[in-house]
Amino acid sequence: MNKLVKLYHTLGSPPSFYRIAGYFLTPLLLLALGLTAYGLVDGLFFAPIDYQQKDAYRIIFVHVPSAWMSMFIYAMMGIAAIMAFVWRMKVAEAVMMASAPIGAAFTVITLVTGMLWGKPMWGTYWDWDARMTSELILLFLYIGVMAMYAAFDDDPRKAARLTALVAIIGLVNLPIIHYSVEWWSSIHQKSSVKLTGSTGIKDWDMLRPLLVMAFATKFYYGYSMLHRARSYLLHTESQKQWAQAALGLDTPKKQNKEQSNG
């Protein structure tokens, strides 16, 4: 338990978070790139054809992992927001602000690939089906979080606290939005070909690339989030000595001290 508490405090301090996150960047990026390459080659060229949707089903290898990520990242952002708001942790603020753009990016991918899938399957690019509608509203939630932070350019701490509040409110509302939209679409239209439901992926050769891509996107999120969080910490702590030391800048005062010591 003591070690855990210590780890929490170590990761909670911007300089050590910056340093430790730095070690993870390259491995995470390599894992993400490698798994993406493997997963997509496997999924696009080797996975068997779906008897119902033919080759068009191969879109799920980017669509479904992105959809999972868009929700997973919002959850991560919400947790970071709670930590940032309750304990005023700078690192949690950084993680929250770093998560928003990647989450929005995955949401955009989900929407665009969903449209490209919808055209051959439904005969239209856009159908107000429950999943796509809640995904679109999720995009607005992400935009709201980013816009809230961007609106304050003079006071990053205050902006981060208000943004955390926006993210928490969104987190509370997300289930309500999700279920209301689902309910709404189940009343007003008979469900057409469900993008994930009807494919009924049971074949391991189809499932494997999907899982590989799910891990690849998770690793990419890890890379991108840590990268952004480091930049965020450098940006907000640019006047601190550790930030300058991290970039190889030593303050003259310290140099003098070292000289007098030596």
């Binding site: 607005f140 939630l141 709201g144 309500i176």
Partner: peptide, 10 residues
Amino acid sequence: SVLVMPLLAP
């Protein structure tokens, strides 16, 4: 409007 719209959608 951006903040409130998702909340009012349900």
